[in-house]
Design a binder for these strands. Structure first.
Lengths: 338, 338
DNA sequence: TCTCTGTCGGTAAACGTTCTCACACACGTT
DNA sequence: AACGTGTGTGAGAACGTTTACCGACAGAGA
C-alpha cells in the first residue's frame, strides 16, 4: 500500500501532472472535462496530497508551533484547546512544546520548532527578562505572537487579557458588596501577568482609599503559596483577599477554612483566570474569566496577517476584555457572620 | 536573510553537495580534512538543515501525532508533558490534536495528522466502540499506539496502567485500615479504563466478601457526577467510597462535607490517577498514581520499535504497575468519630 | 482572411535534501 | 607489470509537489 502520487493520478486520468495539480489544488481554472476526469481518477486511486512535498515546494508547512511554560498549569490547557481548534478549522496543525518553566529549555524548544520550519510561533514566555533574547531572536526568523504574557515591549506582537480591567472588575465588585479592607496575594514573578495585576490592584485600591495602605504579599502562582500567604495575612483581619490567580485563591480558601475562618462570612476571596477548580472550590470562587477563545482567535488572526504581509513591522498589542464571574466566595455577609 | 542551503556550504567549503551532506548528517565517513573544512564553512554561514527537504527525501518527518479526548481533563496534560519530553529528547516533535470527546472530530483529526505525514500516531481513544474504525484504519496507515485507553483488543499496540492492580491496591489498603462496606462510584462509559476499574473493583470486593453485594453507581468521570453519586449512595452508610477517578472523588468529598459527613471519620474516599487536585482536596485524597513518565517512555519506545521493524504484526499490550498514594481521606477512624 | 486575445494544456525547472553510482587514486598482492 | 581492494569524492537522480513558460487552438474584430 504505497502512497498514490500525482503522477499516478496523471497516468490514470490521461492528463499531465501539471493539470492534475491544478485541479486538485485549485490554483488555476481547467476545463470542465479535465476537472471531472481528474477528480474521478483521484477518487478512484484514493489520492492524498503529500504535505511534505507541498511544503517544500511552497515554502510553507501549514504548521504553527506553540511553546508554553507548563502544560500542567490548568490555565494553559484551556488556551491550547482554543488555539488548536482555531488552527485546525483553518487547516493548520499545532506543534507543541512544554518547557517546564525553564528559560533554557524554552530557548531550546523555540529553536527546535523553528528548525522544523513552522510557519509561525505562538509563545507564552516563561520569564519577562530571561525569555527575552530567545523570543526576540525567534521573532526575527518567523512571525511570532506572544500570548497571555510578554517579555518587554516591542519585542513582538502580543495578545493578552486586559489584566488592569480584570482587576478593576474585582475591586469594583468588592466595593459594591461592602468590602473595604482588602489584601492582595500575588506573584513576585516578573512576567507581565503578575506585574500588571499587581499594579492594577495597587492603583485601584489607592483610588478607592487614598491614604489606606493595603497589604500586598508576593510569592508565586501556586496553591501552596496561597495557603502560606493567607495564614500570614489573616492577622490583619482583612475583609477580602484579592488573589492574582485561581490557584492562589484556592490555597487561601483552604487555609482559611482550616483556621476556622468563614468564607465569605468573615472574608471574601477572589481569583483570576476562571480555571475549572475555581467553580469546584468550597465556596465556589468569584474570579475573572479570561476570554480564552477570543485570545486564540486574535492570536491566530494576527499570525495569519503577518504571514500574508511578509515582513511589515509595526507591532501590535491586543488586549481583550475579561468578564467577572461572581460566585459564593464573595457573597455579601450574612447577619450571623458579622 | 534567506536560508543557507547545502549548495552554499558546498561552494564555500570547496566540496560537493554530496560530501557536505555526508559530513553534516554523519551518514558516511569522509576524510578528516573535508570534515574540518565543511564544518567550518557550515558554521561560518550559519547553516541549518531544512527539515522539510530532509523529510521529503528520507520519507520521515521526525514528527509524532497525538490525539486526545479533552486536553482540559487534568490527567491528559500530565501525559502530554511526559510524551513531549520523551519525544524532544529524541529529537522528535509533537503534533497535537484535541477532539472534544467527540469520535467524529477524533476521526477527522487522526486523518489530518496522517495526511501531514506524521511518522506515527499516539491515540487516547475517545470511545471504546465509536473510535474503533478510525483507530483501526489509522493503524493501517502508520505505526499507532493506544495510550491509557484502548478500543477493543488487537486493534493496535496499547500502553496503559494496570487498572486491575491499581484497584487491588485500593481495596487492600481499605481492608487493612478496617473499611468493610465500600461503594463504587464509577463511570458508565465504555472506554477501557472505566470498564477495567469497575471489573477489578467487583472482583476484588467479591473476593473479600463473597456474599455481600456492594453497591456500584455509574455515571461519568466528572466532579458533578461525583457529587450526585455521593449523595445518592450515602443513605446506605458505606464506610468507604471507591471512586473510578480523582474528579469523581473530589466531587464526592465535597458533597459529603456539605452534608456534614466526616471524611475520613465516617467514610473514607479514594480516587484514581493522582492529578494535582487530589492532593489539594480537603482532606487530601488517597489515590492511585499512574506511572505517567513510564507510560510515555514505553509508548515512544514501542513506536520507535514499530518504525524500525517496518511492518511486523504481533500486537503488544504493555501494562505498567501503579502506586498507591495514601493521604488523609483514608486515615484510620479516630475514636471520637466512631 | 488575417491577426489578436484568451483559455487550456503540457514540459520542465525548481524546492533542499539523501543516496546510488561511478570514478580516481593509493595500496597490497600475484 | 597486471590485478584486486579499499577509501574518499563528485555527478546526478530521486522524493512529490507547484509554477513559469510555451504552444495550440478557438473565437472575435479588422
Amino acid at each position: 500500500m504505497t502512497e498514490v502520487t500525482l503522477r499516478e493520478v496523471a497516468r490514470e486520468s490521461g492528463y499531465s501532472v501539471a493539470t492534475v495539480s491544478r485541479v486538485l489544488s485549485g490554483t488555476r481554472a481547467v476545463g470542465a472535462q479535465a476537472e471531472r476526469r481528474v477528480r474521478a481518477a483521484a477518487e478512484r486511486l484514493g489520492y492524498r496530497p503529500n504535505q511534505v512535498a507541498r511544503a517544500l515546494r511552497s515554502r510553507s508547512t501549514g504548521t504553527i508551533g506553540m511553546v508554553l511554560p507548563q502544560i500542567t498549569n490548568p490555565f494553559f490547557p484551556m488556551l491550547v484547546r482554543a488555539v488548536e481548534h482555531e488552527l485546525h478549522s483553518r487547516g493548520r496543525a499545532l506543534l507543541i512544546a512544554d518547557c517546564d518553566d525553564d528559560p533554557a529549555v524554552e530557548a531550546d524548544r523555540v529553536n527546535a520548532l523553528l528548525n522544523r520550519q513552522v510557519d509561525a510561533l505562538l509563545v507564552i514566555p516563561v520569564h519577562e527578562e530571561h525569555s527575552r533574547v530567545a523570543v526576540a531572536a525567534a521573532a526575527e526568523r518567523a512571525p511570532l505572537v506572544q500570548l497571555d504574557r510578554r517579555c518587554g515591549t516591542g519585542v513582538a506582537d502580543t495578545v493578552a487579557v486586559d489584566n488592569a480591567a480584570g482587576m478593576a472588575l474585582v475591586l469594583d465588585h468588592l466595593a459594591r458588596t461592602g468590602r473595604g479592607r482588602p489584601c492582595f496575594l500575588g506573584s513576585a514573578a516578573t512576567d507581565s501577568a503578575a506585574v500588571e495585576r499587581r499594579a492594577a490592584y495597587e492603583a485601584g485600591v489607592a483610588a478607592l482609599d487614598p491614604e489606606g495602605a493595603s497589604r500586598v504579599e508576593l510569592g508565586d502562582f501556586s496553591v501552596e503559596w496561597g495557603r502560606d500567604a493567607a495564614e500570614r495575612v489573616w492577622s490583619e483581619r482583612p475583609d477580602a483577599l484579592v488573589c492574582a490567580n485561581d490557584l492562589i485563591a484556592v490555597g487561601a480558601i483552604q487555609q482559611l477554612r482550616r483556621m476556622g475562618v468563614d468564607v465569605p462570612g468573615q472574608v471574601a476571596v477572589t481569583g483570576f483566570d476562571d480555571v475549572a477548580i475555581a467553580s469546584l472550590a468550597e465556596p465556589a470562587l468569584t474570579t475573572v474569566r479570561q476570554p480564552v477563545t477570543g485570545l486564540a482567535e486574535e492570536a491566530v488572526r494576527l499570525l495569519d496577517q503577518r504571514l500574508g504581509e511578509q515582513g511589515s513591522r509595526p507591532r501590535h498589542a491586543v488586549r481583550l476584555a475579561p468578564e467577572l464571574v461572581a460566585r459564593a466566595s464573595t457573597a455579601p455577609r450574612t447577619e450571623e457572620a458579622q
